[in-house]
Amino acid sequence: MSETSRAPVVELRNLTKTYRQGHVEVRALDGVALSVDAGDFVVLAGPSGSGKTTLLNLIGALARPTSGEVRVGGRDLGAMNGRELALLRRDHIGFIFQAYNLLPVLSALENAELVLELQGRSRAVCRERAESTLRSVGLADLVNRRPGELSGGQQQRVAVARAIASARTLVLADEPTANLDSKSAESLLDLMVELNRGHLLTFLFSSHDPRVIARGRRVVRLEDGRVVADERAG
């Protein structure tokens, strides 16, 4: 951990991703180069269609680039097979989705335990970590609720808990506040900032919401699949 925290967590070189839509080739990313340091709090900003989500997909090892290189924790994703990528996601990357994407059949606690269980931790460890994480996101009283019984903000907090319970190095969030009211959004951002400080977690999330962008320590702007600005807040 100490080593990865010094080296860049994410390194992108000349990253290109094209999709085929019918007969038209769409260039979602076009020669993106980017490096994210450990413990940073980065917002990917830009209008929709600018390539934010595609970039997150590639960094999160959910898809492979058309060309270019993605390194996470110093490892070249292009050289890894599906199984290795799955283990990388399980052990090092936490995801927070715009639509929360909790498993509806599991309680808040069980959702938070999910990744820990996949890692093969003991029942006691799973339970203890999930509970403490849920406590830290302010859901101590709601652990036994199913997602359907929680508000959007609460669901997204469970998603955050799921993403960080196994003490990952990198948390990727795709428009995490887009489905939330402004109050919930604000409190979620507070939580993420707080977690970033306490856990030395690296956060990388996309948004087109100016209020969210304002909270980023570093803001990377994308337009038409290119990085057009990379600013560090004072």
């Binding site: 999160g60 959910l62 599906g82 199984r83 799955a86 283990l87 990388l88 996601r89 399980r90 052990d91 995801f95 989705f97 639509a99 994407n101 498993l103 509806p104 999910l114 990744v115 996949l118 890692q119 799921r162």
Partner: peptide
């Protein structure tokens, strides 16, 4: 499909 995608995204292996 989306749920299954999430399970894969968080690291569940195909055999599981």
């Amino acid at each position: 499909r989306r749920e299954l995608g999430v399970l894969k995204a968080v690291g569940m292996r195909p055999l599981a």
